[in-house]
């Protein structure tokens, strides 16, 4: 009997309960608001989930490795400025689509250098970078929004092939790539082994430094890809871009069953965690809760899930050690 379900769409109890929670939330909101159960709103929720899903996949890999990145929001912001500037300068939309992931991967390399080579705990290193990048965004934008960008990228990602927009293929490809890396290659085993214990992983002959660098770069590239979608979706980049993204991503991934202590993660759980979060945020908005309250809901969910896991002995507080990685 296989104890580790690792198929492309493997679900365990956690994933089924999340799915049930999504369905329940949809039913409740449909009853509460006449605007909720419309095909237009379903499209809005899905569109709003794209960036968070891509960033969530990267965050899942980092958490599973015992790392974390609290700077994903500003990394996406910087990559979005890159994409926006390229688009505004009249660069071919196909090329601009690659600006995002490349910028993100580069910033992932910077984060890895600070954290792995500088031996700074991931949470502290990325918090430091968050401060630096937030100012960088302000300087780059010169205090103004990047707005009214050309529609080239929007048209490109919206072009349909066999009835589905290119965007859907890109997202499916990103998901599949993460699944293959995690469940079908040595890299995935090494990442999970490091998340379990970095010292044991080193003793087992795993190239720990290489795996940690690769994971930060992959996560950065996924965050940069999210920036491409962000620009295509909104065609502007504001000063406060991505300010709640790190919270949203960590909450969605932890909801999805990935261990905050590392060593364990769920791909389907991450997708469902993202959907649940976005369904709740959208639904609360439609029943009249001001958007100001969204981070409260997200933060509450994150704390609630973690403390539930500790209280139900799935996690031991004594194991809280990821700050060291």
């Amino acid at each position: 009997m296989r104890q580790f379900r690792d198929g492309v769409f493997s679900m365990t109890g956690r994933e089924w309960s999340l799915l049930a929670a999504c369905v329940l939330a949809i039913i409740v909101f449909s009853v509460a608001s006449p605007y909720y159960a419309t095909s237009g709103n379903a499209g809005t929720v899905l569109r709003n989930s794209i960036e968070l899903l891509l960033i969530g996949l990267g965050m899942m890999l980092l958490l599973a490795m015992g790392g974390i990145d609290v700077s994903v929001g500003v990394v996406m912001g910087l990559a979005a400025i890159g994409v926006g500037r390229a688009l505004g300068a009249g660069v071919d939309p196909v090329l601009t689509a690659f600006v995002g992931p490349l910028t993100g991967a580069l910033l992932g390399l910077v984060a890895a250098t600070v954290i792995v080579l500088g031996r700074v705990p991931a949470i502290v290193g990325t918090l430091g970078l968050l401060g630096v990048y937030r100012t960088a965004i302000f300087v780059l934008l010169g205090g103004q929004w990047l707005s009214g960008l050309p529609t080239g990228l929007t048209v490109l990602l919206g072009t349909t092939i066999l009835g589905l927009p290119i965007a859907a293929y890109v997202i499916a490809l990103a998901y599949l790539a993460v699944w293959v890396a995690l469940r079908r290659t040595p890299f995935g085993l090494h990442l999970l082994a490091i998340g379990n214990s970095e010292e044991k992983a080193r003793l087992s002959g795993i190239p720990v430094v290489k795996v940690r660098f690769a994971t930060f770069i992959i996560s950065g590239a996924l965050t940069g890809l999210a920036a491409t979608f962000y620009v295509a979706n909104y065609r502007n980049v504001e000063m406060t871009v991505g300010s709640t993204l790190a919270l949203d991503a960590i909450a969605a991934v932890v909801l999805g069953g990935t261990s905050i202590l590392g060593g364990k993660c769920s791909l389907v759980g991450t997708v469902l965690g993202v959907l649940l979060l976005r369904i709740l945020q959208n639904g609360l908005l439609l029943v009249g809760v001001p958007s100001l309250w969204q981070p409260v809901v997200t933060g509450g969910l994150l704390i609630g899930v973690l403390s539930f896991e500790v209280l139900s002995n799935r996690l031991s507080l004594l194991q809280f050690r990821w700050a060291g990685k």
């Binding site: 104890q3 580790f4 290659t185 040595p186 085993l189 090494h190 999970l192 082994a193 998340g195 379990n196 214990s197 010292e199 044991k200 992983a201 003793l203 087992s204 002959g205 795993i206 060593g263 364990k264």
Partner: peptide
């Protein structure tokens, strides 16, 4: 023991020297 508790027996036996 330098074993990874979260991985399977066969994954542990081959860890760092996987067949691919």
């Amino acid at each position: 023991l330098a074993l990874s508790e979260n991985l399977s027996i066969s994954e542990n036996v081959f860890l760092g020297r996987e067949l691919k």
